[in-house]
Design a protein around this nucleic acid. Sequence first.
DNA 1: GCGGCCCGTTACGGTTTTGTCACCGCAGAG
DNA 2: CTCTGCGGTGACAAAACCGTAACGGGCCGC
Lengths: 226, 226
Amino acid sequence: MPTILIVDDEEDIRELIAVNLLREEDYKLLEAVNGLEALHLAKTRRPDVIILDLMLPEMDGLTVFRNLREDPRTKSTPVIMLTARGRLEEKITGLELGADDYLAKPFSPKELMLRVRNLLRRTNPNQGGSVIESGPFSLDKNALKLHLEGEAIDLTATEFKLLLCMIESPGITQERGDLLKKVWGYSDLIQTRTLDTHIKRLREKLGNHGNSIETVRGVGYRFFEA
Amino acid sequence: MPTILIVDDEEDIRELIAVNLLREEDYKLLEAVNGLEALHLAKTRRPDVIILDLMLPEMDGLTVFRNLREDPRTKSTPVIMLTARGRLEEKITGLELGADDYLAKPFSPKELMLRVRNLLRRTNPNQGGSVIESGPFSLDKNALKLHLEGEAIDLTATEFKLLLCMIESPGITQERGDLLKKVWGYSDLIQTRTLDTHIKRLREKLGNHGNSIETVRGVGYRFFEA
DNA sequence: GCGGCCCGTTACGGTTTTGTCACCGCAGAG
DNA sequence: CTCTGCGGTGACAAAACCGTAACGGGCCGC
């Protein structure tokens, strides 16, 4: 889930942005009301995009921006600048410094949202959830590995698909038929012990977390963060 | 050298853009005056960014854009839309379709140039030379050589293409089918050991760095900076 | 034509993965 | 408590997958 940092000292603008962003997409929002807070959040939480109002108390927005660009952790984080001042010169300055976009207030919230979306899509095309987190578990789609308490556990392709199905919706019981269809492409009504076997193998690999996979007798299986 | 395609039927505007772009940076320019020409150029010459005026004779700019997005060759080419019409709704439509930027005429040529520059920097960070860097590896597209710890390793054309595919996105698993398609143009489902053979040859050439190419069983291969 | 390089293919073998089966324990209904 | 059917478990054999060596054809410079 992409993380967005909004830096603005006007609460109503933050609200406006937040409402519009959250309405259509699933973003995680961080908010900062001044430069120092912004820098701290940006460097510790590593947002995927930063929306930066240039009009800030104490520290100027451009100063914040330069500071961001100097730190390796935030050097290449996309930044969209907002400003009440619509003067061309400022815009040029902002873009010259390397801002990825520049909007003058009043702006259309929908436009901002679309620009954020397009920017995100271009910046991390591989994001799309290459790592799935759930409690102490994190699934790495690329390495086909499960990270758990610092350890990396190798999973086979099938095991991975199976675990993914369950971990995607923790606490929800996945019916046998659905799992067979999703992982193996089998039809609903086929009768096989394959599923059981793989569940067992998964539980083994999960070690003492094996009981995170709960059996729902007569229905299917259920995953929950132990 | 980044290639830019300018699509506009007004000569003076093309001129304006061209002069401003060429002044500060070294770009290669392509020009098209209508939709068909634009599509043809985009798909054969593969520009790094497209500047598209929406007001075109015969074929509407938005139609051109949709057509671009449907072809795999131009699907992810950044597009900046230009328009004389400054209506908000049009802007929203353009952005909604996935335009990377949208400027209303009259625009500041300098602003356009900066936006192009920033977009290019984000799109292909490894541009600016035919050398691709990744950790201790650096690939020279012209010489077909891999530089590693001071040594220059000769690669054959195929080996180079293959390594390039993987090194472009470190840590991301490249599926067998995708590699076969990208490097050899084979269809997905073909079964061959050619890929394996070349992976082996690459690993040999990489010497003790050979394990930078990790096999993800049942999926494909994955490169990471060891 | 000759030799060398590059490339795709093939065959083979080792290892991992996977599906099935038989057997067993146990939960839940009666 | 007993019975029954579902799920757990371990073993096993087939299949899938990958690494590797070797082969032969095409291409090019000489």
